[in-house]
Design a protein around this nucleic acid. Structure first.
Lengths: 188, 188
DNA sequence: CATGTTCTAATATCAAGTACTAACTCAGTA
DNA sequence: TACTGAGTTAGTACTTGATATTAGAACATG
């Protein structure tokens, strides 16, 4: 005997969750019922049609890509004095925190600081040599991290840069970065 | 006078790149030409129809979500002995490198090491206190970074973890991480 | 002038639906 | 027994956003 209505609907939801690209026709075949039955089931379960499902998935994806992708630099650099100092802002959002406790993952704070340290130096290629960092207090979702960096020592190719990150004046992260630039032969 | 064919096609691609959900009809309106013209343009440019575009985006997303999404951790942890040691692999890809020279951004190496250091500790909430790190040599696109971490000191709530990252046996990054766990009141 | 490029128009068709109406199958029951 | 109702199937008309194809303008250019 074939499945009861409830069983079929459960099966449907299951099937859709691991392949949301099923048409009504395919689902009908799978369940051994008519297309109309599947449509009624979808109505009852509030499942939109294939195209709508697909569109929603694509939209979610698109939004994410938009908000996240230009991560050439983590944080937004808002002020920059080459070889001297710079300021960058990073708003801690969903994607930066541990799901469990909404505390920012350390590597985002590091990334903001590192990006800023590298951005300050006016050269084609700048690499980090080493860093000594300290996470002074946990940062929570929604907090705005303002990192300030200043070059405190240099010998032309190597730079020592101090970065302090604050949330409302309060220091949450600080680090000392040693970065260096690769001199390229044909540079102007 | 309206746009030339080339200009229109350029405009089309532009428009689609910041809103891929445009129908032919909407694009026709935007460009002040007939739908048929837009279709011809799409043919020439090899742009699939709306539904196909949307479907592809959704599929990419779906695949990514399946394969990549648990990026709770950067790099793939392949071995883990709680409170003792761990190993993680990170393949350096496009998204990890500077576009200009294909050298990996420091913060990805840091993130791999930091994620691993935090993962090792068997507790609900583990945070990084400080780190002393050194980028021994630049890592290029395509290289596989294998990070090994071991706990070298602990006093129950605080841990000192050494992480070494290698590409083909050669050390490219090393760091000493101090992490700590938050004891939660009601833990078993 | 003929020719070719570019554009527009019109028609038939498709996939994957919605919306609606009608009818069939049984099982329980008044 | 006849009736009722849930569950299912069938069929039609319509919608969107296309494809595929054919045909005809508008206009420049050799």
């Amino acid at each position: 005997m074939r499945l009861s209505k409830k069983e079929r609907q459960a099966k449907l939801q299951q099937a859709l969750s691991n392949d949301p690209f099923l048409t009504d026709e395919e689902m009908a075949k799978k369940c051994g019922v008519s297309i109309q039955t599947i449509r009624l089931d979808r109505m009852e379960l509030g499942i939109p049609e294939l195209r709508e499902r697909v569109k929603r998935m694509a939209e979610e994806n698109f939004d994410q890509v938009r908000s996240l992708s230009p991560e050439e630099v983590i944080g937004e650099v808002i002020e920059l004095q080459f070889d001297q100092s710079g300021i960058s802002i990073l708003d801690i959002r969903e994607e930066h925190v541990f799901a469990r406790n909404r505390i920012a993952r350390g590597h985002y704070l590091f990334a903001q600081a590192n990006s800023l340290a590298v951005a300050i130096i006016n050269a084609e290629v700048v690499l980090t040599r080493s860093a000594h960092i300290r996470f002074v207090r946990p940062v929570k979702m929604g907090e705005r991290c303002i990192a300030t960096a200043k070059v405190i020592d240099t010998d032309r190719a190597r730079f020592q840069i101090q970065v302090k990150t604050r949330v409302n004046q309060e220091i949450v992260f600080q680090g000392m970065f040693h970065v260096y630039r690769l001199e390229e032969e044909g540079r102007t």
